[in-house]
Design a protein around this nucleic acid. Structure first.
Length: 479
RNA sequence: UCCCCUUUAGCUCAGUUGGUUAGAGCAUCUGACUGUUAAUCAGAGGGUCGUUGGUUCAAGUCCAACAGGGGGAGCCA
């Protein structure tokens, strides 16, 4: 057996009593021809391996370059140095893989996030990305734990879909037809009957419609999978491929929906605070140092840990779209004409500057906005009795904006079909969706949470490309 | 897709009103030192100044187009 190693995180938690252990990892630095800082990805903390003078061949020492991989066996002793409590006095060191220091792109020094983005295949070996991706893992795990504890069924909705009627965004086409000479109909349009699925297909933009089918059988379901949008979005909070969590609950109204979303977000943050304390502390410090370079008015009022603590211990602010418009209209910010888009009145779509004002200036906490005008929302949202609004809710988070979008669904078949016709949604194509309303329809609701935006919020990373391993954005799909 | 900023050594940057051989710190390499903590000290190598075109006696520096990167907006999660 090759792997008899102990992980460095576990080793660092032990008492040094001269025990013999084997560790494997990558060299971060080699100081003074005597001290190897070894990292194995289990924690940002390195193990100090002591190479006693004269005990090892000079030629071997030359191979302890940055990111060379080592297998080290030795005895665990209390450290004489100041930076660590224990260290490993090496008795044998094997170089598993050499690393040419002149060619290896990551140097033992600070690198910009932009540079590391171009080295996305190696950036996990840095402290920042080590912390970010360990937290990403923890959050993914916590999502399943949360819903499992609540009795939800994890549902795998299809990645390839035939419906293009959801209206959530531009889609990526999936086809096996030859693009230089596709089969044509008589009117010269492309004949998708000859395509692989016998029809036009796309990558999914949302699992919601299928999720509703699950909810109206299991009661409560959630999806957690990749989602694709072919929008030409070039921002720090959009990806062409991202992961989304979409719970869908039968026997549930808008308020139940909001309660679940709020509890869910707080659960995830609390989970990371309990299980990833070290990584969060590292990222908090990184963020604090980064903000020192910013002018006073651009710095956050709270540190990362303070912010997370605040969000888990305070209720989210809930208000209706109508109330939000009133607050914005009466704000000094609006009266002094400081909004690029002035508040023209009820019915307008809120711009991100308006959302940011509500969240970051007015309430200074996450905000749940409800009951938007039906004109600016999707066809499946439940129409309110006022005839003007729908039972929608968006959760806005400081720093990243919309993190959750959800609604109570329109369960009344006549109302739903009428709305679909108004919005030119083809009812024939969605016959299977409408069947849920024909056969035992129930009040139900759900929401979508952008996983990467959640990871951004917890880690404090300002660019979404730094919280997914291999970001897919317009004109960019390296690796 | 639109607006703004940016591109000089492996990385982060400086480079004056256009003017001789384009600099620094870190990294790398060589040597010294040996309980170091981003070790330290000494020395060395390393550049098609994003690309193309233009203005000029002369362009890293001025102008244009294109490309890459960043910030903001729209679309949204």
């Amino acid at each position: 057996m090759f792997n008899n190693r102990i992980r460095i995180k576990a080793l660092l938690a032990q008492e040094p009593q001269g025990q013999e252990v084997t560790v494997m990892g990558w060299v971060r630095t080699f100081r003074n021809n005597q001290f190897i800082a070894l990292n194995d990805g289990s924690t940002n903390n390195n193990l100090q391996v002591v190479v006693e003078l004269g005990k090892f061949d000079e030629a071997l020492l030359k191979r302890f370059t940055t990111s060379a991989s080592l297998k080290v066996t030795g005895t665990v002793v209390a450290s004489q140095g100041k930076g660590q409590t224990l260290e490993l006095k090496a008795t044998s060191i094997e170089v598993l893989g050499d690393s040419d220091a002149e060619a290896y792109p990551l140097q033992p020094k600070k690198h910009s996030l932009e540079f590391l983005r171009e080295k996305a295949h190696l950036r996990f070996r840095t402290n920042t990305f080590g912390s970010v991706f360990r937290i990403r893992h923890a959050l993914a795990f916590a999502i399943h734990q949360f819903f499992n504890e609540k009795g939800f069924v994890y549902m795998h909705t299809p990645v390839i879909t035939a419906s293009d009627a959801e209206g959530a965004g531009e889609m990526f086409r999936v086809t096996t037809l030859p693009f230089d000479n596709p089969p044509r109909n008589e009117d010269n349009s492309i004949n998708f009957k000859e395509d692989f699925f016998g029809r036009s297909t796309n990558l999914t933009v949302s699992g919601q419609l299928e999720g509703e089918l699950g909810a109206t059988a299991f009661g409560d379901i959630y999806t957690f999978g990749p989602t694709f949008r072919a929008e030409n979005s070039n921002t720090a909070r959009h990806l062409a491929e991202f992961w989304m969590i979409e719970p869908e609950m039968a026997f549930c109204d808008l308020e139940d929906n909001m309660n679940l979303a709020e509890e869910f977000i707080q659960y995830l943050i609390r989970y990371a605070m309990e299980h990833n304390r070290e990584d969060l502390e590292f990222l908090a410090q990184r963020l604090a140092e980064e903000e020192k370079a910013l002018p006073q008015d651009k710095r956050s009022e709270m540190g990362l840990l303070e912010k997370l603590e605040f969000v888990v211990s305070n209720k989210f602010e809930r208000l209706t779209y109508t109330e939000a418009i009133e607050i914005l209209r009466e704000s000094n910010h609006n009266k002094k004409k400081k909004f690029q888009y002035p508040i023209t009145g009820w019915g307008m779509d809120l711009q991100s500057e308006h959302e940011r004002y509500l969240v970051e200036k007015h309430f200074k906490k996450p905000v749940i906005l409800t009951n938007y005008p039906k004109e600016i929302k999707a066809f499946y949202m439940r129409q309110n009795e006022d005839g003007k609004t729908v039972a929608a809710m968006d959760i806005l988070a400081p720093g990243i904006g919309e993190i959750v979008g959800g609604s109570q669904r329109e369960e009344r078949q006549d109302r739903l079909e009428a709305r679909m016709k108004e919005m030119h949604i083809p009812t024939e194509e969605l016959w299977w969706y409408l069947d849920t309303r024909r056969f035992g329809t129930v009040p139900h609701a759900g929401f979508g949470l952008g996983f990467e935006r959640m990871v951004q919020f917890v880690t404090g990373m300002t660019n979404i490309r730094d919280v997914i391993a291999f970001p897919r954005t317009p004109k960019s799909a390296e690796f």
